[in-house]
Design a protein around this nucleic acid. Sequence first.
RNA 1: GGCCCCAUCGUCUAGCCCGGCCUAGGACACUGGAUUUUCAUUCCAGGUACACCGGUUCAAAUCCGGUUGGGGCUACCA
Length: 498
Amino acid sequence: MSLFEKNKVRVRFAPSPTGSMHLGSLYIAMYNYLFAKHHMGDFLLRIEDTDQARFVPGSIQNIINTLKWAGFDYDEGPILNGDVVSDKGAHGPYLQSRRLDIYKKYADELVAKGHAYPCFCTAERLEKMRNEQTLRKEAPRYDGFCRRLTAAQIAEQRAAGAKEVIRLKMPQEGTAKFTDLIRGEIEFENKLIDDQVLIKSDGFPTYHLAVVVDDHLMEITHVIRGEEWISSTPKHLALYSFFGWKPTQYAHMPLILKAGGGKLSKRDLAASAMEYIDQGYTKEALLNFIALMGWHPAGDKEKVGMDEVIAEFDIDRVNKAGATYNPEKLDWLNGMYIRAMSPEEFARAARPFLMKAGLIDASFPDFKLVKYTALEQLRVKKFTELAPAIEFMFKAPSPEKNTLCWKKQEPANAAAALDGVLATLADIKENEFVAEKIESDIKTMIAKNSAPVGETLWPMRVGLSGREASPGPFDIAAALGKNESLSRIQNAINILRS
RNA sequence: GGCCCCAUCGUCUAGCCCGGCCUAGGACACUGGAUUUUCAUUCCAGGUACACCGGUUCAAAUCCGGUUGGGGCUACCA
């Protein structure tokens, strides 16, 4: 705690709007959020839209919606109202594309101090240079050609209208060292680091300049980002040092790997994290699942809510190694959450899936829906499994004769058993037609005949559901109601005697 | 290729920082069993892991070095 007690913790989630927010981004957002909330600090959203070519319209809205959906409310960040952007918080604007003048000012300062320089190298020259370096088995990197330009040469280039970028003048000696909160000490040799472009020829900053300037100006205390940024950290550290600023603390998260290994990309799963809902998962299960990738609470708990995670979260306990995305475990967790719902909650969540499957419409009564969906609540792991599982409730089945017979039971025998079922059900009053009553009456009837229960229950269940695997016969009958149950049993008897 | 990160069951992980309680714990998946009319649920049981080689030490999954393997970066992308 001593590390954080002086200043309020401030972290940011800083995605680039190049597409929908997928599982990997949600994971980074979550850990930032958890860290902030655990330390009672601020969580900011900043949009890193400095690459005009990769900008995808609508993705800022998707990012904001996803954070809101996940419950990761940001204390500061952009607010979108249609196409109108406003700022929440005192450190805006929170869209980097609206901070161009700020970056320009700091880049100029660096040039003035001799820590950066204009570069006029063409794409062609750079490409040729890299090819030659690769051929010579050298690390491809900028050769420093424009470092040595005189003022006169610079003026000449500008007069000729040459395209210009600003490059960072990396120190050629010493090391860049930092202590990563997750990994410990990491050290790089400065002279191996490239002279990174800071301002592109279109006037936009690159990530490296913008991230340092903004993190400083927005008073960010801890940068929690993906492991892919480790190798550019020395550039950021050089920038902090040139500006005379105190660097943030760093925590580089392990990457989520796909099943065969390798970084998880958008192609490997749902484009948008919110699509997991359409795929039948609950938000709580998904969040729980992501929280457990790379981190684990003390003890053997697997099902943990966000509140609990916030309370227990400790960046120290975050794993260093990348975790492979494991859909089976997500399914299992989702099943846990489904089983923990009340029948009413379950029915409410299930309604859109049944509507989409064309089984019901918006006017389908709640009380009936609850009866139907409760039949499968213990059985399904995802909501998408529900419609096929209870379809039989909506359309009377016509099972095969063989299917209606239990093990090696004769059809005549099964039909006789169903005669008993029919009579028993017919005797139950409409308002007493509930699972418990049906069960006790049917079992009493079976006991009188002293036959194996399967000889009656199997044909009854298949008669009602048309399926070899289904919920129990008493529950189905109760959910179906007396009339429909009698009609289905009668139909089964007819099939058996045909 | 260079630089950097990482390495416990098939997968997610506990333990590692502060060596001994680890004949390595939990979960998913898998297999078998119990319950049962079926499928699930639930419960019980089972197998499978400290990548390898050296070193330090009375003692190493735990500390050190190397090897191998995996990953990331190596852009006027983030």
